[in-house]
C-alpha cells in the first residue's frame, strides 16, 4: 500500500544528477556511462550482484571515490576538485556505512555532536539537544554516554544513522547498512530507515533487502557490471523484469527467501 502511495507522491526538482559518469580502477572499468537523476524527496534503492558498482556509485556522490568522466551534480553544485564546493556538498549529504564507522574513542553523544559543532558551528548545548532528539528517534537515548564498543551492531548502526541526521542533511546515502548485521538486528535498522523515509528525506540505499525496497522505494535501480541495467518502480521491476540479467539476479536472491 505504501508503494502505491509513494508512487503518487509529488516529487520535486532534481537533488542528484549523474550524467555520463565513468570510473576506472586502473584498467578496470567499474562505472560505465551512468545516467541517473534523483528528485528531491525520492527514495531510490540500488540493487545488483556484488561487484556491480553499486557502492562505488553512491560513494562517488559524496566523493569518497572520484569519477573520471562525466558530471555529478548534487543539490545544484557540481562535484569537482574545488574543496569549497565539496565541503558544501558533504554538509548536505549524510552517509551510513556497512561497517558503521562510529568513532570508537568518542561517546555516542560525542559521535553525534562533533560534526554539528565543528562543521555547522552549532553551540554545544544546542548540538547535544539535537543529538538527544535524534537518538530518541532511533530509540537509544539511554546509550548516549556509552562508547560504540559497548553497543550491539544494530544499536551502532542506529547511532550511525542518528549521527548523519544530526547534520540535518538534505540527502541520505546508505551503503549496505544491514549487510554486517546479525539477522535479528536487521529489522531494527530497517524500521529506523522506514521511519526516516516517512519524513520525506531524499534517500539512496544500496541494499539486498527486497522487502524494504518494496515497502519504501519510489524506484529501484538494478546495476550489473558497472551499468544501470533497469530502473523502475519496485512492483514493475520485481514483477516484470525486462532483461535476462535481472531475471537471473532475482531468481538468485529470491531462492534464499
Amino acid at each position: 500500500m505504501s508503494a502505491a502511495l509513494s508512487s503518487s507522491r509529488h516529487l520535486g526538482k532534481p537533488a542528484i544528477q549523474l550524467l555520463g559518469v565513468n570510473k576506472w580502477y586502473g584498467q578496470m572499468h567499474v562505472l560505465r556511462n551512468i545516467n541517473l537523476e534523483i528528485a528531491e524527496g525520492e527514495r531510490v534503492v540500488v540493487c545488483g550482484p556484488s561487484g556491480s558498482g553499486k557502492s562505488t556509485m553512491i560513494r562517488c556522490i559524496n566523493r569518497l571515490e572520484e569519477h573520471q568522466q562525466g558530471q555529478i551534480i548534487v543539490d545544484g553544485i557540481e562535484l569537482s576538485d574545488d574543496l569549497k564546493s565539496l565541503d558544501a556538498i558533504r554538509r548536505e549529504v549524510g552517509m551510513v556505512f556497512q561497517s558503521f564507522n562510529l568513532f570508537p574513542h568518542l561517546t555516542i553523544l560525542e559521535n553525534c555532536t562533533l560534526a554539528p559543532i565543528w562543521v555547522r558551528k552549532m553551540p554545544k548545548k544546542e548540538a547535544e539537544e539535537l543529538a538527544m532528539e535524534y537518538l530518541t528517534r532511533v530509540r537509544i537515548p539511554e546509550q548516549a554516554n556509552k562508547y560504540p564498543g559497548q553497543l550491539s551492531g544494530g544499536q551502532q548502526q542506529r547511532v550511525a544513522i542518528a549521527r548523519a541526521l544530526c547534520m540535518k542533511p538534505k540527502i541520505m546515502l546508505f551503503d549496505e547498512p544491514t549487510s554486517a548485521l546479525d539477522p535479528e538486528m536487521i529489522k531494527e535498522v530497517l524500521d529506523t530507515m522506514v521511519m526516516l523515509a516517512d519524513t520525506g528525506m531524499t534517500m539512496i540505499c544500496v541494499t539486498h533487502e527486497m522487502g524494504f525496497a518494496r515497502q519504501v522505494a519510489d524506484r529501484v535501480v538494478f546495476m550489473d557490471r558497472g551499468e544501470v541495467v533497469e530502473s523502475n518502480t519496485p512492483n514493475e521491476l520485481f514483477g516484470n523484469p525486462q532483461t535476462d540479467r535481472l531475471k537471473l539476479f532475482l531468481s538468485q536472491i529470491l531462492r534464499g527467501h
Partner: peptide, 12 residues
C-alpha cells in the same frame, strides 16, 4: 572507514 566517516560528515 574512520577517515571516510569523518570526510562524509564534512569535517575539514
Amino acid at each position: 572507514g574512520q577517515y571516510e566517516a569523518a570526510e562524509a560528515l564534512g569535517l575539514s
